[in-house]
């Protein structure tokens, strides 16, 4: 199958830069798939699951917390705020931050940034969900 180059970059490092066959990305308007020779595209990414089909038999799953996707010249770049491989998700940390964010909303903390707290809940829930679904699929 035709392939293209995918790179996933975060403010901290380049996480991934390899040839892949297809990716499925949580775009602003819902999940979208990208195959080789896709038309040039720019779209924001929502928190969700990023699936990479490296070859017919290898699939890689990641949890992404938001960012951008840019596709041009048979090259896709994911600019991620934060991204982890599904099996490397820190479950304890995600649980803790979920609890913290919920508590903030319940207690109506002074100077609460409501949007940020909600976004935090979304991110943490996303991590937990992906960790679980991927674990189930692998069983």
């Amino acid at each position: 199958m035709a392939s293209f180059i995918l790179s996933i970059v975060t403010p901290e490092h380049i996480l991934f830069e390899e040839e892949v066959e297809s990716i499925v990305v949580p775009g602003a308007l819902g999940y979208l798939g990208v195959l080789a020779n896709h038309a040039p595209l720019i779209t924001p990414i929502e928190p969700g699951r990023l699936t990479i089909q490296k070859s017919a038999s290898t699939e890689i799953n990641l949890a992404i917390s938001g960012g951008f996707l840019e596709v041009s010249n048979n090259k896709a770049t994911v600019l991620a705020d934060a991204v982890e491989y599904a099996d490397e998700i820190d479950i304890e940390r995600a649980k803790a931050s979920l609890k913290r964010a919920k508590q903030r909303i319940v207690e109506r903390e002074e100077g609460l940034d409501f949007e940020r707290a909600v976004a935090g809940i979304k991110r943490a829930e996303n991590r937990l969900k992906i960790f679980e679904t991927v674990a189930v699929e692998h069983r």
Partner: peptide
């Protein structure tokens, strides 16, 4: 720009709204 005709999803305005705060933060960082 690079002269490539991009598809913007959903549309340039909403992408600006998403992009600019991150861009600002990136500059500070």
């Amino acid at each position: 720009g690079s002269g490539v005709n991009y598809i913007f999803e959903p549309d340039p305005v909403s992408i600006y709204d998403d992009l600019m705060p991150r861009y600002a933060m990136m500059m500070v960082q």
